[in-house]
Write a protein that binds this DNA or RNA. Structure first.
Lengths: 203, 203
DNA sequence: GTCTATAAGATGATAGAC
DNA sequence: GTCTATCATCTTATAGAC
């Protein structure tokens, strides 16, 4: 924390350093195939780094890098969530907008850029505890963002939090369905149904 | 199809043959870690088979066995769906019952026995076309079961089908969330919210 | 901090006896 | 149909020069 002074995210305007490139690339590749399908060799190649650099920044190897990648994906997904939720006065319409944003990103990437956490999350259950914990924290983080948005719209305390859990879960499930079936429909339907559900809780 | 006469599922009362053991074991292991996390060596060991048998029944190797395993998991999940949906007159309550069944199975397996398709589905997107196709068919199959149940309750044609897509997606997403967070809550909340949504479409 | 070469083991798949 | 031994390749990780 006080070693070289600028080891953390100091200058966001500068070009990303080797560590950042490794994390971003890992996040992107794990977004596709998950953890096991992503060999470190491909990782360092696409990050334009070397094995030496990887084990310099992440002595814990692939697993430690994967945890950092999940945290990074957590932040990226959170930003998309904030963008979508902020675009409309009506919270029901806001949730639907998030589903539409996800469908856009999915179609634009030929159905490959889904949730940056889901694939790894499933692989991690009961076998990679540190990764699983990072994934669980991501879900909690996103639920909190949705809950705050619902609370701000006047939905009461227990209902808003409960709804947020289901909203995030439904978006995850619908995104996966859209990916596998190569169709926007599941996400768009989920958006419509979630909007109806949220509206039914509005004061 | 007409080679040895009894190569298919002839006697369901007899103890399962080697082929069946391979398929069941593959389905069970892929239910946990997915495709890449399941080495063939572990597969044949737990199936009490040998490499020779695997490549005898599945000349296409691991991939061909994986497709058969997904089809098997498709059928198992479909049965759980039928059981849950048939238990209540009210379709809203029936959907909620499915979520409760899933939560029970999950907790009983220490959060490991989730959907037998999801993990593999995500890994397959854009990289294993035959597996991806089998996974997409599973989702379609389950959606059809739910749609028929809703239609039988008097929900009209386009609404019932659209709802079925969201119901299956939500159950998938909630089950994943329950697995990763080791908690029944996400599935139980999803069940409650889905019941409310279904009720809002009832005549 | 970065690089290459290499270790040590696991991986999917095959050969050929039985 | 089943078995074991083995292949070629790929895997994560390390060593040590620069």
């Amino acid at each position: 924390m006080a070693a070289t002074t600028k080891t953390k995210t100091a200058a966001p305007a500068t070009e990303p350093g080797t560590r950042d490139r490794l994390v971003r690339t890992a996040s992107h590749l794990m977004q596709h195939g998950g953890y096991e399908s992503t060999p470190v060799k491909q990782l360092v190649r696409e990050a334009e780094a070397t094995l030496g650099s990887l084990y310099h920044f992440f002595p814990g190897g692939k697993q430690e890098l994967a945890v950092a990648a999940i945290r990074f994906g957590d932040g990226e997904f959170a930003q998309l969530l904030r963008d979508g939720l902020a675009g409309h006065e009506d919270p029901a319409r806001a949730v639907e907008a998030v589903a539409e944003l996800l469908a856009d990103a999915l179609a634009a990437s030929d159905w490959r850029d889904g949730c940056p956490v889901t694939a790894t999350a499933l692989e991690s259950v009961g076998r990679l505890p540190e990764l699983q914990e990072a994934c669980a924290q991501s879900f909690g983080h996103w639920q909190e963002l949705v809950a705050q948005r619902l609370l701000a719209s006047g939905i009461a305390e227990p209902e808003a939090r409960d709804l947020a859990v289901t909203i995030v879960a439904t978006l995850e499930g619908a995104e996966m369905t859209s990916q596998v079936t190569a169709s926007r429909t599941p996400l768009l339907l989920a958006g419509r149904h979630l909007a109806r559900l949220v509206a039914s809780y509005l004061p």
